[in-house]
């Protein structure tokens, strides 16, 4: 991403902290996301990745530090305002609106762009009909992108797991974000499904001109598509760079495999070369 370094970053975390009592879930994390980049955030369980997502999207207030989105400090704003500014997310444990139809799930994310007032709705005016039709068509277009158009009348909780994941991404996209945060989008998928999903993420990044930050545990997937990877452990960033850089980093190897592992892996690689 060398060619992009002179542009203004879309999101910047400056010494971001989030403590839960004595637990430093996120501790002085700096992170810069360039526009249109596909960024990965990895780390062992409990290293603070999802907490960072929750702070960025406003579910938690930062204990210290700053979250800057497009030059504006957004730390501590209400989640719905942050979403309207252009950050959307998916959740680690899928959080659809389970008893609503697939179409309604997407239409809800479109709510802020509905374009009619509550009295229009109650009076069922012509303007309401027109705008509601437009809204529905837009939502159906999103379902098409994710190949869910035939499922639109289905109740969301009855969808198979993979489709629920896709629907959640579709819903996030419908709120027309500039930055999309994906929390373990490939969790529970087999390798083949995961690769299809990654292609999809690549595709929507280009189609909707998004910046993407994703948390993922399947290394094959992260290493395959992320242009820039940040590795966290115990609430702190321990490495950042391209996939190759991160794989070689001794801190990363030790975080994942335990102390001393870096030395062993170096020996192993040497032996293999010989």
């Amino acid at each position: 991403m060398a060619e992009n370094t002179n542009t203004t970053p879309i999101l910047e975390l400056r010494k971001l902290c989030r403590y839960f009592g004595g637990l430093k879930a996120v501790n002085e994390v700096d992170l810069v996301l360039q526009p249109h980049a596909l960024n990965g955030l990895i780390g062992p369980n409990g290293s603070g990745k999802t907490t960072i997502f929750n702070v960025i999207t406003g579910i938690y207030e930062p204990t210290g530090g700053e979250v800057v989105f497009e030059g504006q400090s957004i730390g501590g704003l209400d989640p719905y305002i942050i979403n309207q500014m252009g950050i959307a997310r998916t959740f680690q444990n899928i959080r659809l609106f389970p008893n609503l139809t697939v179409l309604d799930n997407v239409r809800i994310a479109y709510h802020t762009h509905a374009g009619y007032s509550m009295s229009d709705a109650i009076m069922h005016s012509k303007h309401f009909d027109k705008k509601e039709n437009e809204l529905t068509e837009k939502a159906q277009d999103f379902l098409r992108v994710f190949n869910l158009q035939d499922r639109q009348a289905e109740i969301a909780r009855n969808l198979p797991y993979g489709e629920q994941r896709r629907l959640e991404i579709a819903r996030a996209l419908a709120s027309s974000p500039k930055l999309l945060l994906l929390d373990e989008p490939a969790a529970g998928m087999n390798p083949k499904e995961a690769i299809t999903l990654m292609e999809l993420i690549h595709f929507i990044r280009d189609k909707f001109d998004l910046t993407i930050l994703l948390i993922e545990h399947q290394m094959r997937v992260v290493m395959g598509i992320c242009e820039h990877i940040t590795v966290m452990d115990f609430g702190q960033v321990i490495a950042r760079g391209s996939a190759q850089d991160v794989q070689k980093d001794s801190h990363v190897i030790e975080a994942y495999l335990g102390p001393g592992a870096a030395e062993l892996s170096k020996q192993y690689l040497k032996e293999r070369k010989q």
Binding site: R95, F97, I108, I122
Partner: peptide, 27 residues
């Protein structure tokens, strides 16, 4: 009429999942 509009869906989404609703821009 209220329920079958975007406002009604916003109201119902809060029952379904408050966190998800607020993350989708619902006040």
């Amino acid at each position: 009429n209220l329920l079958n509009s975007s406002y009604g869906r916003a109201i119902v989404s809060i029952r379904e999942d408050e966190t998800a609703a607020t993350s989708m821009g619902i006040d």
